[in-house]
């Protein structure tokens, strides 16, 4: 599954981060393929300058629109979480992260 996800991803986040003409929100959207249709696969880190230029030009307009409405609060220390109900449903079992915990001494016995 991971291999498929990686194949679909077109953008290298390392490059996207430092593209000043793309807003931070757009960076994340592109990287997660939320606004890009890609059926052909292929690697993200294409060095084809024409392709990059194409997207850059397209971004200039979109980033101008998205920049003024920065809704995220960068000063907030506490990260954003889903609602209580969603979290309760997700974490009804801790199997997802079970491998992150050391087994208790009692359990080992």
């Amino acid at each position: 599954l991971n291999v498929n996800i990686n194949r679909k991803r077109k953008w290298d986040i390392g490059k996207l981060i430092y593209m000043e003409n793309v807003s931070a929100e757009d960076c994340i959207k592109r990287w997660r393929n939320e606004d890009v249709d890609d059926e052909e696969g292929g690697d993200s880190d294409s060095d084809d300058s024409n392709e990059e230029d194409f997207f850059k030009k397209k971004d200039e307009n979109s980033s101008k629109e998205s920049n003024p409405k920065q809704t995220i609060d960068l000063e907030q220390f506490v990260p954003y979480f889903d609602t209580f109900e969603k979290l309760a449903a997700k974490w009804s079992s801790v199997d997802l992260i079970k491998n992150r915990f050391i087994r208790s001494a009692v359990e080992r016995k």
Partner: peptide, 15 residues
């Protein structure tokens, strides 16, 4: 609920 919420947040943070 506050105790449970903190615990859910911790699990989410771990993940």
């Amino acid at each position: 609920d506050i105790g449970a919420k903190a615990a859910y947040h911790l699990l989410e943070e771990i993940s």
